[in-house]
């Protein structure tokens, strides 16, 4: 079921490292620069760095929100791209896509932790799933983020702990998200991208 991967290019951050990782894995992809190119792809990646509210605004300006919400094809949000799939972010109190009825929160100062959460943290995949197929149940991935998606047994595909248990990966129907950066997470991260290209 492998098919062309479209990267939703809505101007939210640098994607050089992501495309480099796809190249290394031999995964064919192209940029989706405008909404009329959307339908010709078989799967989608929503990248994203920076401010979730600003990213949402750019996504709206791209005109691709309705296409993303209506597709039945696999979608993978990475980092802020994953947060966009939630209904709300405490970052700028932003309303987001609302694919999954969960919220994106700021790591509380009360946790006395260093923020941004930067580095390699252990990710536990909770159930057998296509995205983490072939990986150990506990694997380190590379994170850089200040906001996290709350743990929810219905949607959390893999969890990590940083003072609080949060969603390192989520799934809702055909929508997937990873909070870590697969393109920077060594061979494990490349495996995630490869797995997604085969869903």
């Amino acid at each position: 079921r492998s098919g062309a991967l479209g990267i939703i290019n809505y101007g939210a951050g640098n994607i050089f490292s992501l495309t480099a990782a796809l190249n290394r894995q031999g995964i064919p992809y192209a940029m989706i620069n405008s909404v009329d190119e959307f339908d010709k792809f078989e799967r989608y990646i929503i990248p994203g760095v920076g401010h979730a509210g600003a990213a949402m605004q750019k996504l709206e300006e791209s005109g691709m929100v309705a296409k993303i919400l209506n597709t039945k094809k696999p979608v993978l949000g990475i980092c802020v791209g994953m947060q966009l799939l939630t209904e709300f972010s405490e970052e700028g109190n932003s309303k987001l896509l609302g694919v999954a009825p969960v919220k994106t929160r700021l790591f509380s100062e009360n946790l006395k932790l260093k923020v941004p959460h930067t580095g390699w943290n252990k990710v536990s995949s909770t159930i057998d799933n296509e995205l983490f197929k072939g990986l150990d149940q506990e694997t380190h991935f590379y994170f850089v983020h200040s906001f996290f998606i709350e743990f929810n047994p219905n949607f959390t595909l893999a969890s990590a702990d940083y003072g609080i248990q949060f969603s390192a990966a989520l799934k809702k129907d055909n929508y997937y998200g990873v909070q870590f950066h697969p393109e920077k997470s060594g061979e494990a991260g490349e495996k995630i991208l490869k797995n997604f290209s085969l869903i």
């Binding site: 050089f16 490292s17 480099a20 393109e183 060594g186 991260g189």
Partner: peptide, 11 residues
């Protein structure tokens, strides 16, 4: 930087 980003899978 470009050459490293193309070939290296860690930050």
């Amino acid at each position: 930087v470009k050459a490293v980003a193309r070939q290296i899978n860690i930050p």
